[in-house]
Amino acid sequence: MGEFIPEDRPNALRRAWDSDLAYSFRTSPVALVSGIVALTIILGAVLAPWVAPHNPFDPATLNLMEGFTPPMEPNAFTGNVFWLGTDNQGRDVFSTILYGARTSLFVGFMAVLFAMVLGITLGLTAGFRGGWVDGLLMRIADVQLTFPSILLALLIFGVARGFIPPALREALAIWVLIVAIGLSDWVQYARVVRGATMVEKNKEYVQAARVIGAHPVKILVRHILPNVMGPVLVIATIGLALAIIAEATLSFLGVGLPPTQPSLGTLIRIGQGFLFSGEWWILAFPAAALLALALSVNLLGDWLRDALNPRLR
């Protein structure tokens, strides 16, 4: 492979900037704004250890006296100002959001990756093989679709925990969560990939490969897979938003991540306890961050779908 790439091609950045997708992005206000919002949150989360004013998990930097400081007001004892205030233990809410988003995004990305790999593999197999393999996989998918995915994730999470020794539960919680969310979400990928595979496998370029006796696995991986990835990317983007919300929901319900590994959902659960005593900021800012993240990623997915759709090259 790669033997026919020209030496004198324009550099990759130039080509990316000139591409129709980049142009559509540049000229769509919705895409631009959500892109900036999502990128800001993602960058902030990834770089949290370097950009957060405090490390909320380092007990040494915590000062209980600074608890419940309202946003933008100097603390009554130390005079420190916190942009978004502090929580009951004196942790900087802004910093907890950055670290929380980090966890949420990690779970979201990994869950999507897991669902994607599983869904693509099963979808390719079902679409290419057809017959009873296809029938079986798609009936399983149908059955799974009749359950709300959050319920399913809850169920998988519960069952998985039953099999894990208590000592490991806390450490493995995040992985269990990822698998639970991923397992509840593979169906979409499988269905779309199966449909696209059934279309592609009858196209003449695939038949041309079969005429010369190319191996089926090679045909699947090298011919069909690259041509079904367009719609998968769209679902994956929207799926990321859904996975982040699913994680938040589970953590909010208290079955997700422990408070030692807080995600945005955990922060919201902690914050709602203070809503009625007047410390609204402990809930409001993490909730706003979650909303901004999920919404912007979702809008990006919508844009991507529209941008790829008219000309799925």
Binding site: E3, K203, E204, A208, N227
Partner: peptide, 27 residues
């Protein structure tokens, strides 16, 4: 198999859109 080949009707479907022409001919 090496001794026979096929040419298809639709030149827009018979070449994999993600492959370079050289790769297609070299397959």
């Amino acid at each position: 198999r090496r001794r026979f080949q096929m040419i298809f009707q639709d030149p827009f479907a018979s070449l994999n859109p993600r492959w370079r022409v050289g790769e297609i001919i070299a397959e």
